[in-house]
Nucleic acid binder design. Structure first.
Length: 824
DNA sequence: AGCACGCCGACT
DNA sequence: GTCGGCGTGCTC
């Protein structure tokens, strides 16, 4: 075929407004390796600045116009296949991000490139000529000073640092144009493929041994090595040395003598999960479990896309149903994906799965190192495993021939990404299932109201596991009215009911868990005398104290400063206001002298002392009471725990968010479910100032249906999801009044186009309102909320808004981004 | 977004 | 002349 090989490329440097495939010529030298899904370096824009990109398609075109050429290929093989590229395309359209943003989110961090720019003085240019060229440009002279101080070459980051507030860009370009400077870009990958050297005999065994005999010395290590290799064929150098006691130098010597040959082989950093010894026991399902299993398997056998909800109270054995379904899926030659909210909290789940599917599972979770994660990804891509268990981003695992996706605890918010692209793993899973004719199984004790609604209306099939394992009764739930406690003179955090129950447990050698509901995660700081609170200089939030480094930090922009322990205003001592766990611990220690109280919160948990260690102590040493935050509420089984208490059950209810009720119900239900998984009846004490609140009552009764009925009625009246979809449009800028004005202006644009155009989507517009955190990183944020339908028409219209907004001159200094189903 | 280009005033 | 400041328009 005639013509120029042309690549359509999605670029990292292209902002949302100009994001589209750009055409580049593929130079002959790169034709062999260029393929869709391969990342490349290209020149972009008038200044030909370097940009990373990914090839979307190749075609052979008659050379119509002159195209720029690809500079280099960054991958030897595609990092995304066609299905992967299609997901990225879909994400762009659905989450208002650029295609490359989507690509980046899909790839393991070990595959990301960091671009490093260096600037150096061109060869053959002397100092005098350089300063001559800089002439009267102050920036250029300053740049040369920096470069010469560095031996004529410097990283862009070093140059930026030296320039402080000023932009070194113009100076660099000025001198580059005069051929004084060269600027180069290198793409560095975070993680390399791990290789090991493999050694094998280069000669037939007898000949090799013969060669050794003829040597002058006895060389026992050489002989042993050759003998072992003659038996084993080839071994890694490491193994060979381990078995024979030889050193790498011995091997090198043998290679030099021509006896053995060395080669490199790719290895994975994490060996396949060590088989846990005993394989999983044969599973016997209860009648309900069997019915759910049969129903869902029938969906899988149909080979059509389908979604199902498996609602099962805590302890009803959803996991057993998952395992049987996985067996079924594998038997059909398909693969499966199991998503969990936070894998560190479900170690049991992973080890149970491994015992049933030894050697066939890859695990992707946050505490893996970047390299290990990357290797798991490679293992999946190579088709070496059939099941992937992982957290949110595992939804992109490059499994082929997907048959089933399980989303366990599907109501959890950790499935929604907090940064761009703000995808929800549930949506991606749904999309993949639709494309691969797979079944999406949503599992939960307390499904999201939307999910339950779709199940009710028949969009999802629905299965229920209503009885707990061994038909154990639900824990007895006691509501403690904290108003009355206060009236009766108990100003502490432990109610008299809870105290009595604790007493009984301590006396009988049973264990108890106390749980603190709360708003934030970490410890705040305030002056004990004047009430001063340290604030982030860039964001409108208080700084929080981190005991790990003794610094005050901002969660939004990462600003950190040293904690002096003193108030800068009045010089008073500052107080550390914890999540409250410490206070509870102290009060308990006063109530029960000599009884050990274990505390688990952000302060007592650290990378060196992960919560597993604490929990292990709790179980093994039978520590009577554990006090903790959210992290004690999730998916843990403790045989000996018969009492749980929630210190402030209603706290999360009074948050400005329509999901607050759902969130509180789910949390309390989970906590109550923690009690009494052993052979004794459990009790749960919910302390509240509003014992009559319906959410608290439904949670106390473990009545999901009741909660759902009341919540869906509320949502219907207010038009909240599932009766509408929400979008937020956030305008941000450095100047507060300008930002607010821009947001009003945006509302004006919206109303004009919505009213005038009969084809426009139907949307209700709310706002402008300040974002929950008004200022982040010195940018103010105001936003509009749109209620309507998340369909193609609406999304295209929002896309148009995003592209158009900045074209107006008055919005120059502002930026706008959109999010669907924002959780804030 | 990020950058060049073009036009202007200021400085040498 | 030549630099720097700002407004405008394009990116294969």
């Amino acid at each position: 075929m005639e013509g120029v090989l042309t690549a359509k490329v999605a670029l990292a440097e292209a902002a949302y407004a100009i994001d589209k495939p750009y055409d580049y010529a593929v130079p002959p030298a790169l034709c062999g390796g260029a393929a869709p899904g391969v990342r490349v370096m290209v020149p972009f824009g008038r200044g030909n600045r370097r940009s990373e990109g990914i090839i979307l398609a190749l075609s052979r075109n008659p050379a119509a116009r002159s195209l720029k050429s690809l500079t280099a290929l960054l991958d030897e093989a595609p990092v995304l296949d066609e299905a992967g590229l299609r997901i990225a395309l879909w994400m762009r359209d659905r989450y208002f991000c650029t295609l490359y943003d989507a690509v980046k989110a899909m790839l393991p961090a070990g595959l990301w490139f960091s671009l490093k720019d260096t600037v150096k003085v061109a060869g053959g240019v002397d100092r005098e000529a350089a300063y001559g060229a800089a002439a009267r440009s102050e920036g250029a002279r300053r740049l040369l000073d920096v470069l010469y101080a560095n031996g004529g070459e410097a990283d862009w980051s070093a140059v930026s640092l030296a320039f402080g507030e000023d932009d070194p860009g113009p100076a660099v370009r000025l001198l580059a144009k005069k051929n004084i400077l060269l600027s180069e870009t290198h793409a560095l990958r975070g993680v390399r493929d791990k290789m090991e050297s493999v050694v094998s005999l280069a000669l037939p065994a007898e000949e090799a041994l013969g060669l050794l005999e003829s040597g002058k010395r006895a060389a026992p290590l050489r002989r042993a090595s050759v003998q072992l290799l003659a038996q084993a064929g080839s071994l890694s150098v490491k193994e060979l040395c381990y078995f024979t006691g030889a050193s790498p130098a011995t091997v090198k010597g043998l290679e030099k003598a021509g006896v053995v040959a060395l080669s490199a082989r790719e290895v994975f950093r994490r060996p396949l999960r060590p088989e846990s010894g005993q394989p999983g026991k044969p599973i016997v399902l209860s009648r309900e479990q069997e019915a759910a299993f049969e129903g869902i398997s029938a969906l899988i056998s149909r080979g059509e896309p389908a979604a199902a909800l498996l609602r099962g109270v805590t302890g009803s054995g959803k996991t057993l149903v998952y395992i049987r379904l996985l067996e079924r899926v594998l038997a059909r030659g398909k693969t499966a994906l199991v998503l969990v909210p936070e894998i560190a909290l479900t170690p049991q789940l992973v080890s149970i799965f491994s015992s049933y599917f030894p050697g066939r599972i890859a695990v992707l979770h946050s505490s893996l190192r970047v390299g290990e994660r990357y290797d798991e990804w490679k293992r999946i891509r190579a088709g070496l495993v059939d099941i992937v268990v992982g957290t949110r981003s595992a939804v992109f695992a490059p499994l082929k021939n997907l048959g089933l996706v399980v989303l366990d605890e599907e109501q959890e918010y950790s499935y929604k990404s907090e940064n761009n692209p703000r995808y929800h793993a549930r949506d991606i899973a749904k999309y993949r299932c639709a494309r691969d004719n797979a079944v999406l199984l949503l599992g939960s004790a307390t499904p999201a109201v939307e999910t339950a609604y779709f199940a009710e209306t028949g969009l999802y099939r629905s299965f229920l596991l209503s009885s707990r394992y061994n038909d154990r009764p639900l824990p007895r739930v006691i509501l403690a009215d904290m108003r009355r406690e206060l009236k009766e003179g108990n100003g502490g955090v432990i109610s008299s009911v809870l105290r009595e129950e604790l007493e009984e447990n301590i006396r009988s050698g049973r264990q108890s868990i106390l749980f603190l509901n709360r708003r934030g995660n970490s410890r705040m700081v305030a002056c004990g005398e004047c009430g001063w609170v340290p604030e982030c200089p860039r964001c409108s939030v208080p700084l929080t104290y981190h005991s790990a480094n003794g610094r005050l930090m901002c969660h939004y922009c990462g600003h950190s400063e040293k904690d002096t322990g003193r108030c800068p205003d009045c010089g008073g001592l500052v107080k550390y206001i914890g999540a409250g766990t410490q206070k509870v611990q102290e009060e308990l220690e006063a109530l029960f002298p000599g009884v050990e109280i274990l505390r688990m919160d952000t302060d007592t948990v650290s990378p060196s002392r992960p919560h597993e260690v604490l929990l292990d102590r709790f179980v093994k040493e039978k520590i009577p009471v554990l006090v903790g935050t959210q992290m004690v509420a999730k998916g843990l089984d403790f045989e000996n725990v018969t009492l749980v208490g929630v210190i402030n059950a209603d706290l999360s209810l009074y948050v400005d968010n329509f999901r607050a009720r759902e969130r509180t119900f789910s949390l309390l239900t989970q906590v109550v479910g923690r009690a009494g998984r052993g052979d004794r009846e459990g009790r749960a004490v919910l302390q509240t100032f509003t014992p009559d609140n319906d959410v608290i009552r439904f949670a106390a009764a473990q009545d999901y249906e009741g909660f759902y009925d009341s919540e869906i009625a509320l949502r219907r009246i207010r038009g909240f999801p599932p009766f509408s979809d929400l979008f937020t449009l956030t305008v941000s800028g450095r100047d507060e009044t300008e930002t607010l004005r821009g947001c009003r202006n945006l509302r004006g644009m919206l109303e004009k186009t919505l009213g005038a155009n009969p084809g426009a989507p139907e949307l209700l517009v709310l706002g402008p309102a300040p974002a929950p955190v008004l200022k982040v990183n010195n940018r103010y944020r105001y936003r509009l909320t749109l209620m309507g339908k998340n369909d193609r028409k609406t999304r295209e219209w929002i896309g148009w808004l995003l592209r158009t907004f900045r074209n107006e001159k008055q919005n120059r200094n502002l930026s706008l981004f959109a999010d669907s189903d924002s959780l804030e």
